[in-house]
Amino acid sequence: MFHAKRLQKELIKIHQGLPPGIHLVAANDFQEWQMDIQVLDENPLYYGKTYRLKFKFSNNYPIEAPEVMFIRATDRDIPMHPHIYSNGVICLDLLSSGNGWSPVQSVESVCMSIQSMLTGNTKNERPDGDDQFVLRTSTSLRNIRFVYDDNTV
């Protein structure tokens, strides 16, 4: 009900300025936005590259978490990370609809969390079982249940 109003306000704030390495690509409605993120330190895995995130909001946002994934576009690939599948699906506690998400989070804070998730990573690899996961995952993220078995990443 208030999701449009809340997103409207996030948009105003975004237009006033975003943290370094985060850019708004498209926000034409209150269903789907696209953001670009860069890793700002010299992590060789991501140095000089830009990645694109797609946010999907339900009418229950921000009570309900947005669906967030990486997407491919011109000059935009899916970053290598042990918690990011090659189809762009991100395994991040913050984005799970269980207790990970909190309605005080925003598009900006989610971008920053994903940014720091990349910054801290040194492994040039995909999650276990990436091939099978990509084969059986439809485009809807809602029903995926991740098992957070590795807290070292």
Partner: peptide, 10 residues
Amino acid sequence: DYLIDNITFS
């Protein structure tokens, strides 16, 4: 800011 709800931003 202190009048604004952290969830609705209103």
